[in-house]
Simulated assay, not measured.
Amino acid sequence: MVYMILTGLLCGGLLGFVMQRGRFCLTGGFRDMYIAKDNRMFYALLVAIAVQSVGVFSLIHFGVIEFFAGSFSWLAVIIGSFLFGIGIIFAGGCATGTWYRAGEGLLGSWIALFGYMFMSAVMRTGVLAPVDASLKKVEAPTNSIAESTGIPVGVLIILFVSIVGFVVYKEMKKPKVAIPSMKPRRTGLAHILFEKRWHPFVTAVLVGLIAILAWPLSAATGRMFGLGITAPSANILQFAISGDMSFINWGVFLVLGILLGSYLAAKGSREFRFRMPDAKTGMTSFLGGNLMGFGASLAGGCSIGNGLVMTAMMTWQGWVSLLFIMLGTWTASYFVFIRPQTKKKGAVAKEAVTA
C-alpha cells in the first residue's frame, strides 16, 4: 500500500507539474487547430505518443510488462469520444487538464471535475451502467492495428516515429516568432522550472517519458495499464460514498498526484490563485464535466487514456477515439466560438448598411 501511494503520487505529481508548467492543454490544442489553424499542440501530442510507444513496446519486448489490446467496441468509442470532445469545450479543459487547472485554484475546474467524477461513477456502477454495457457489446474482432493489417507492430512504430520526426523537423524550421517577455527575476534551475516558457515539444517528450514510467510502476501493484484518468476519478467518488477499499488503486493516487504537482508548479511560478466563475460559467462547466464523464466512460478512456496511451499502443480504440474527440471539439467550438462571432459581425454589417 505504501508503494502504491508513493509511486502513484510521484508519477501523478510529475505529470501535473509538467503539464501545468508546459501548458499541455489538449482542449486548447484541438480548438486552436480549428479556430486559429495552429497545430503545434497537436504535433506535441504526436511527439508524446511516439516517445511512449517506443518506450512501452521496449518494456513489453524485454518482458517487464504485458499488454493485450482485446476487442474494439467501435460504436461506444465513436459516440463516447465525440461527446467527450463536446464536453471538454464546455468544461474548459479535458480530464487531465481539469485536474491540473483545479490545482491552480480555478474553481470552475473543480465544478467540472465534480460533474466528471459523478457521471463517470454513474456510468460504471449507477443507473446508466446498462447503457454503457449495451453499447460496448458492438465490437470488432480485434483492437490491434497490427493484427488487423498484418503489419508488424515494430514496423508501425518505425513508420509513425518517422512521420512525427519529419513533422517536428518541418515545424522547427519555421521562422521563430519573438515573444516579448519580462526580465527574468530568477536564475538557474528556479528560472527553468518556474519562470522560463517551456517549448511544447520539450513538454511533450517529458509527458511521454512519464507515460512510460507509469506502466511498470502501476504494473507492480497489479494494475496493468499506464496513465488513466476516468476510472480513477470515478473510484474516488465511489470510495467516498461507500468506503469500499476495492475502489482504491494506483490510478487513484496518480490523479491525486496530478492535483498536487500542479499546485506546486502554480505556487512556484506564482500562478496560483482562487478564481470563482460566474453562475453561467459554473453551470456550463458542470454540464461539460458530465458530458466528459459520460463520453470517456463509454469510450473506455479520455484524451489521455485513449488519445495518449491507447494510441501509443497502436490500437484502433486509441486512434478512432482521438479522431472523434477532435471532431467533437471542433463541433462545439463552432457553436461556442465561431457562430456567435459570425452572427455578431453580420448584425454589425446590417446596422452599418441601414444607418
Rank of each mutant, 00 (worst) to 15 (best):
L59D: 10
Y43I: 09
A44H: 11
A44T: 13
K137M: 02
K136N: 07
F118C: 11
R124W: 01
F118D: 06
L75Q: 00
F72Q: 03
T125E: 09
V51Y: 02
S120V: 01
G108M: 10
I79F: 11
K137S: 13
W99N: 08
A50N: 00
F90Q: 08
F84W: 07
I49G: 00
S53H: 01
G108T: 15
G87D: 06
W99E: 09
E104C: 11
N39H: 14
E66I: 07
F67I: 04
V56K: 02
D132P: 01
T98N: 14
F114A: 01
F114K: 02
A48P: 04
S109Q: 14
S73R: 03
T98S: 13
L135W: 01
V56C: 05
A121Y: 03
L106G: 04
F30R: 05
A36H: 15
L113R: 00
G105R: 02
G55A: 04
A112I: 02
F68L: 10
G87F: 00
R124T: 03
Q52V: 04
W110M: 06
K136E: 09
R101D: 06
I79D: 01
L46C: 02
V131W: 10
G93L: 11
F57Q: 05
G92T: 10
I89G: 06
G29R: 11
S53C: 05
A44F: 14
W74E: 03
V77Y: 01
W74N: 04
S134M: 12
A44N: 09
G92S: 11
V54A: 07
F62I: 03
T98A: 08
N39M: 15
V77M: 02
G103S: 07
K136M: 12
S134W: 14
T98D: 12
L106Y: 06
S53R: 00
